[in-house]
Amino acid sequence: MQRSFARRSLFGAAAAVGGAAFVGPLGGTAVAAGSARRRWPARFPLPDGFRPEGITIGSEPYAYLGSMASGDVYRANLATGRGRVVVQGLGPEHPVAGLKIDAWGRLFLCGGASGEIRVADLRTGRITKSFTVGTDLTLVNDVFLTPDAAWFTDSFEPQLYKLPLGRRGEPADRVVTVPLSGDWVQGAVITGNGITATPDGRALLVVNDFADGGSLMRVNPRTGVARKVDIGPVLLPNGDGLLLLGRLLYVVQQRQNAIDVLRLDDAGTRGTAVTRITDPEHFRVPTTAAVHGDRIYLPNARFDVEAPTPETDYDVVSVERVRA
């Protein structure tokens, strides 16, 4: 019998970093004071030319970031900001977009336009499993872990990918494709993006950047039927990474250089706007978010740079968690 989808744990999340951020109700702004007690860097550099997109943080104070340029995975010490490559990439044809770490030291990697799903072992730095999914149009964008499966989004095909997991998180030998239906509307541009679970753990939440100007969808993991979440007037046309902390959902709106924070009901069928976080000085098209302590960390993907070079600089910024 399949273990209950509701008994989940968040093995990884996405994050944002930045010094003094602006936090306020949607449509307004207010200044969020930085923590005077915090001595760790609120912002730290990544290697030049790295081209980050995804971030994940486990139980220890290390952030893991994937490279769209090379497929490398970089580990940064949150206490110092220093880091190194811990998984060597397979080259520019095998990028890493979203990624998540589990409780056993595995990294689940989204291969972007390569259509690949990879699993890496942090103890050895080696890729232990690799799958190719979807079609020639597929872009494997983001991943979320439940106790039973790793769930991956496809930005150009109306479907999710489910990699079943064993009792200790060991991945299966095949990936299951779950077509999306119901209220799901597929656009000609990037559509499915960030993914997480509802607060009660019974369903998945997926950003749809196209439907009705940018929506949040609640997806039944057994059937793939999607229903639009009522989030009032909030639109998510640039919705990227999702981070759920309790009933607060952080939606990174990358090209808006903002994070919209929504309060959801337990079932994830409704949400209301709590605040919008911006940081004009430090946000440079952040994409995903992960949390450690009272800080949310985000990589600046700099998608506004049309022709990034090996000398293009990248960094990670952080903001304080919303207490509401």
Rank of each mutant, 00 (worst) to 15 (best):
P179Q: 08
A226Y: 00
S215T: 15
R222Q: 13
V225S: 04
A211C: 10
R227K: 14
G224D: 06
D209V: 10
N220F: 08
W184R: 09
V175P: 01
L216C: 11
T198M: 14
D173W: 11
S215H: 03
G194K: 01
A197K: 02
I195E: 06
I190S: 11
A203P: 06
V185R: 15
T198W: 14
R222T: 12
P221T: 06
A226F: 05
T198K: 11
A203W: 01
V207P: 01
T196D: 10
N208H: 07
T196Y: 02
L205A: 07
V229F: 03
L205D: 01
A226I: 09
G187D: 10
V185N: 01
G192Q: 11
T196E: 01
D173Q: 13
I190T: 14
V176K: 09
D212G: 13
L205H: 05
D209F: 03
L204W: 02
D183V: 04
T223N: 07
T223S: 15
G192V: 02
R202W: 04
V189D: 15
G194R: 03
V219P: 02
D209I: 08
A203K: 10
A188C: 06
A226E: 03
S181N: 08
S215D: 05
G213N: 12
K228G: 01
T177E: 14
V178L: 15
A226K: 04
G201F: 11
P179V: 09
D173I: 07
P221K: 09
A203V: 04
I195S: 03
V178A: 08
N193T: 13
N208K: 06
A203S: 14
A203Y: 01
G224C: 02
V175L: 12
